[in-house]
Nucleic acid binder design. Sequence first.
DNA 1: GGAAGTCATTAACATTTGATAAGAAGTAAA
DNA 2: TTTACTTCTTATCAAATGTTAATGACTTCC
Lengths: 195, 195
Amino acid sequence: MDMENLIQELQNRYKLSLDSAEKLSKVIEVIQFQKGDTFIRAGKINTTEYLILEGICRSFLENVKGQEVTLSFFNSLKTISPNLTRTKNLISILNVQALTDIKLASFPTLELMRLMNENRAIEMWGNGILQKELMQKVSKEINHISLGAKERLLTFRKEYPLLENQISHSYISSYLGITNVSLSRIRKEISNNRT
Amino acid sequence: MDMENLIQELQNRYKLSLDSAEKLSKVIEVIQFQKGDTFIRAGKINTTEYLILEGICRSFLENVKGQEVTLSFFNSLKTISPNLTRTKNLISILNVQALTDIKLASFPTLELMRLMNENRAIEMWGNGILQKELMQKVSKEINHISLGAKERLLTFRKEYPLLENQISHSYISSYLGITNVSLSRIRKEISNNRT
DNA sequence: GGAAGTCATTAACATTTGATAAGAAGTAAA
DNA sequence: TTTACTTCTTATCAAATGTTAATGACTTCC
């Protein structure tokens, strides 16, 4: 993505004036991580906004048994905001990890808030992100309760097309809440039925 | 609950001054519903906050198969989750139903907002409760993915003590994501092991 | 008190998913 | 190319959960 497109993206995404978007673009730092890197950690302070330019990430947490549970995936042009991950005191409650080599546009949340200027706008922006996330969670919860593993995989494919061929399947199974072996079995069942 | 306690409850819950809490208490309307009544409906406008004085409610939604999925329970002296967390553009995104005869203290969300502004008590109050709600959802999601039905029932019992003896079990099974028959079987297993 | 209805339990069987282990396919390093 | 390593697949068996149906307990209504 070139600079002009990026500025337009910022304008749309954060409802900024052209002027503000240009200012924001000046403080943007493009950073890269390697496949496997966990760049936001639960329990650590996180005050940076990320826009994915290339690659795929996941958010995850450990359960009581020490297994990692994948909560959601982020791919190109998705944002990862501290609004999603942090508590009041700026501490992140979840981990975010690169599943491929990734390139991110990053900038301090504070800078964005400064440019948004009005408190009302900042609050609505943050609330909007959270509300959207909540609705997604409700939807995932209902899916998970109502559907069997096979149907959940089909739903996953609709929601994240292509992803199944781009990342390790263990992340997908921990997202679906099944074992790797079950995932493999279900993949086979589905492909057999499609014949 | 007498008026004095109610006012104190409002103060704590919404971080209002005594004065503001008293003002709020003046616009409170106490309403009653019968067991089974669904008094907040998905898709309908809702602009009201509720505090449960007596009884038990649940929030729920229909899944694609037409079955009702219970999202959470609310019992005495809990607020039904704040309007902000269950509406989008004033439209409710879920149903709330009385599971016993209930008595509610209700007041307009707008009035609460007005009083909060007056206090300038908490900017970002909404952000805080949305985040709290989100964390609860994340926690339930991880539980549901990581634990078997028996462990989920035990978790449910810790989170909602007594509830199991006060409401129809079909609501509990639809909350846990299992069938009524499985719930009954698991109850028996647990009580046998406790011997 | 009896009849009808609802709900929880139990049983028998089917299906799904997990656990373990072994093999196959792909990838990276020597 | 060989070796080692990881990941996905496949097979077998065990455990958990769903389905269906019958029964008993309890309420409600007449």
